[in-house]
Nucleic acid binder design. Structure first.
Lengths: 206, 206, 206, 206
DNA sequence: GATGAATGAGGATTCATTCAT
DNA sequence: AATGAATGAATCCTCATTCAT
């Protein structure tokens, strides 16, 4: 029941945002006959939104926790990026939900996002600080943000790509392609490209 | 008057999205005492939103048109990327407006975005197709989208960065840093990096 | 229009109190097809309530201002009490409205009542301080309150009297009787009774 | 449990009236986690209200029954008025509750009040009919109502007195003063004033 | 005797929009 | 070109109440 509500709300919020969704609509989508029931499970719309976010982000948090020190750095021994892309591809609304949350930030939301995402950011930064590439320490926040946008932007903005590129971003072929693209792109950025070539002095480039 | 309305609406829509903004709020922000006046200038809310979008995107279109065949490819002779970043930094709500428009796509909006953005995309693709790097033709839509997200994501998601990274994304120092970061990142991705270090055998690194 | 709303609201609030009245009901009673129109004239329910109170109390304020230094002290040369009773009898909902306002006091309401009623109280106190009777200065607030309750209580609690006493408090005969009663009672309390009868034998008068 | 509910409900109804109080609020105030429990003890909101009223009025009924034929007539041998004032002062919400009940009269309530209060009224009338003072038989309902308002009005409208007179009506000093005031006022009205002073020149005392 | 869940009706308020001025 | 007024529909949320446990 609570889960059904969260499911319905997740779909709705991802698709139309906090302001664009009505409690009536969520109730209907959840198979409830009445909006009042929503308020039995969640204090108000904002609380429901935050619960949706928290539940939606949990798997990502877990996934990155599993990855440990390697973060999303691509490489044969680290499946984290693959897994992340797979997960995002299987949950097409998740990227949109996160993107929405960034834009719709209210005070409360900001708190929630901060609580959930800041640890991720801090760990991610640690990983990046070991990366090669032309990056100075002051670049790292920009680099972290850039990777975030590269990874999540594809699914978040899928409809746009559909429209301007006549490209179905969710097709299996496109998802596979996006996985390869992301790996290569991250490798290019972090200097951790699969060792296609040996750096001149034998030191790994990163 | 019309411009004042557009200004107010642009701020509002960028900040809270189509559904999150009321005609009353826009009228108030524009200094009008009555919402009815809005309907003298724009047929309805949707039309106002589209006018805002169109006006907001025009400078970007012009800027990219000016860049011509070089697109955003970084290099000493191409100031387009610098100009774009400067423009986005000076119009902090613009990136958010565009990101919103992507997410809020309705039928009508989709049409507008398609009309405006598709030519840009097509030209951009042409430019990218000449890029170096490990990209096959089928990667190009992914690469184009990736660049788009890299560039616009920084300003669109500024508040998030603020919160998790304790970083003021709009400070002059941060903007300058982002400009350099973007150049370097695009260079890494497109293989047009200024030859900061020479690959041992003279072959471009990617 | 505004006046029609105030009329409807006055009737409703007097009869059922702030919480007991719905904006929908007021709109209907005012002949409006829609509650939304109420909000064109009054910011919210509370503001409407306060406007009703202010308008309702104004005649009383004026009446007492006219009475000047004599206040409500009964006597052949001071028609104020008669006029007040007449006015209250002609506006049966007014006493109830005031009684309601006393009970329903919220922060805002308290402010309104204070603004309107405090000057009346201060002036009334001055009048009473000249009264005869067994009153010490510290009795005066109690005396003022007592007179207030004597005067307004009759109409405010009319339904109760109807029920327990099988008495129609609004009938002309009853109103006339109440006028005489009030005069006599105030006279007894303030020591200014018209010398209606001389205790013939020194026996206690009552 | 039942008593705890009645306590909570009494406080709530006295403070905000029947319409201003929610079953949820009462349950919370009674320490219950769920409104459903209320319905185990009382059929519905109206029944709860009536139970509160009945329980609240019982001590007053008892007190007046004890007073017997003397009613509230003040005098050294009759402590009823003192007791009543003490009781009202100790139960500050009771006067408000009664005043509310008068104003909120619904059909059902009217029945309850009638059942409880009419015997009191009838007995009171009998007592008053023996009173001295300038009262004719037809004055008696007015006199009875007047006494009622004098006595109950002070506590019912305490907040108003607080606001306009900067007077704490519940302070021990004020309560003591009110007791003396009421005695004196009733004495004045009923003609049973202790012969405190002899009019020095045969002129009416006021 | 208490509670969690559900629900229909209704609460206040805001919405986008229109019309007369 | 701007405004005040009006309105139907929708907003979020709370209401009193019921039922199964």
């Amino acid at each position: 029941m609570r889960e059904a509500i969260l499911d319905a709300a997740e779909r709705s919020f991802a698709e139309r945002g906090l302001a664009g969704v009505s409690m009536r609509g969520i109730a209907a989508e959840a198979g409830l006959r009445n909006q009042a029931s929503l308020y039995h499970h969640f204090q108000d719309k904002q609380a429901l939104y935050e619960a949706v976010l928290e539940r939606g982000l949990a798997p990502l948090v877990a996934l990155l926790a599993q990855a440990g020190d390697r973060g999303l750095a691509p490489g044969p021994e680290n499946p984290a990026l693959d897994r992340l892309v797979d997960y995002l591809a299987e949950h097409p609304q998740l990227s949109r939900l996160i993107q929405r949350a960034n834009l719709d930030d209210s005070r409360l939301l900001r708190t929630t996002l901060q609580r959930i995402l800041q640890p991720l950011y801090v760990r991610g930064l640690a990983v990046l600080s070991g990366a090669a590439g032309p990056w100075e320490p002051a670049d790292l926040p920009h680099l972290a943000a850039g990777l975030f946008h590269l990874i999540f932007g594809y699914f978040a903005n899928a409809p746009l790509l559909e429209v301007v590129a006549d490209h179905d971003p969710h097709s299996p072929a496109a998802v596979a392609r996006q996985r390869r693209f992301l790996k290569a792109a991250i490798a290019q950025l972090l200097g951790s490209a699969p060792a296609r070539r040996v750096p001149r002095n034998g030191r790994r480039r990163f």
